[in-house]
Simulated assay, not measured.
Amino acid sequence: MQRLSGRSALVIGAGIGIGRAVALAFGREGARVAIADCGEAQHRTEAVAAVIASGAEAFSVQCDVTVEADVAEAVRQTIDRHGRIDILVNNAGIGQPPGDFLALDWTDWQRLIDVNLRGVAFGMRHALPPMLKQRYGRIINTASQLAHKPAAGAAVYSATKAAVVGLSVAVAQEVAAHGVAVNCVCPGPTNTATWRASDADWRRWKTQQLPIRRVAEPDEIAPAYVYLASDEASFMIGQSLSPNGGDVSW
């Protein structure tokens, strides 16, 4: 049986990369999927078509997570189209501009906070009320292995992702007794647009640092989200799953 059969999912940041892989994996597991993203409309259209090709229902919505009204509208449309919202994935995020901590100005800092942290908070703020009312929900926030292993040259990015973990754990404790589970996925280096845009020498160095000696493909990260979205993860509360090729081990 499909693990997400009958469930309604909203994946924010689903046009490309890990988010797209998650949306497709949810569709294969039987979920109806709302694909939200602020990127090119073509990416959303292609992701929707791929989910539908797997036999699942899907639609897209434009969503800039720095605009709370956009996030609220994505939640509203999911409920209007699917009758409820069972699963929320907060996956939208941006990387840190090149340079160390002293090279960043406060505009860079604020942009990272607005997308990587406030965007997650907006998603939870608007999805939680209907989930609490129905006494069922799964919220999965994308953090990073850098939340647990901060790196030079990624100070502010690491801080935002560590904050996502902290926020998720705190909210998880508030809502767990009401049927809503909040957890994180903390991916390691993955073959996404952000990875490919980074410095080539650094990519080669980082790959050699990984015990597995390669970066992940998005399809290798998506199963962690499927598990946390499923009823199999009913006892997972405030946890971080970190598919990272051995970059962080504990």
Rank of each mutant, 00 (worst) to 15 (best):
V226W: 06
V33S: 02
Q2M: 13
D247Y: 10
A31E: 02
Q110N: 08
F26Q: 07
D219V: 14
I79D: 06
I212K: 12
R32G: 12
P150Y: 00
A9Q: 01
V215F: 07
Y136S: 03
C38K: 12
G179W: 15
S5C: 15
V22H: 00
A170S: 04
N244C: 05
A172D: 01
N90C: 08
C184Q: 01
P98M: 13
A103D: 12
N191A: 10
G119C: 06
G238M: 01
G95N: 08
G15Y: 00
E57L: 12
A177L: 03
R213C: 10
G39T: 01
L104P: 09
L146V: 07
A152C: 09
S198H: 05
S158D: 02
D37M: 02
P98W: 15
A23P: 00
G27Y: 01
A233K: 05
A224W: 13
A216E: 08
V171C: 07
K206H: 15
G93F: 07
A229R: 06
V171N: 07
P243D: 01
G30C: 02
P218R: 04
D231W: 03
F122G: 03
C184M: 02
W202R: 13
D100H: 12
W109V: 09
I94F: 07
A127S: 09
T194Q: 14
D86P: 01
C63V: 07
R32M: 08
L24Y: 04
G30L: 04
T160Q: 04
D37E: 05
A92F: 00
S234D: 14
Q77G: 11
R84I: 15
S240M: 10
V215G: 12
T192R: 05
A151E: 09
E29K: 09
A31S: 09
I221H: 04
G137T: 04
A50D: 07
C38I: 14
A152G: 12
S54L: 10
A181K: 11
M1R: 10
Q62L: 13
A154V: 13
A197K: 08
W109P: 02
H126V: 05
E220I: 11
I94A: 11
E46D: 06
A147Q: 03
A47V: 08
A56W: 10
W109S: 08
L210C: 06
G99Y: 03
P189C: 12
E232G: 11
K206Q: 13
R118A: 06
R138M: 01
E232Q: 06
D37W: 00
V51Y: 04
D105K: 03
S249D: 11
I52E: 13
A25H: 07
Q208A: 12
A21H: 05
Y227V: 04
Y136I: 04
P187A: 06
D37S: 11
V164P: 14
V180W: 14
V89I: 10
A216K: 01
L4E: 00
A143N: 01
R3W: 15
A69M: 11
V48G: 05
G238H: 01
Q208V: 07
Q134D: 13
A34V: 12
R32H: 14
R213T: 11
L104G: 10
L128A: 02
P187S: 11
G19A: 01
A177I: 13
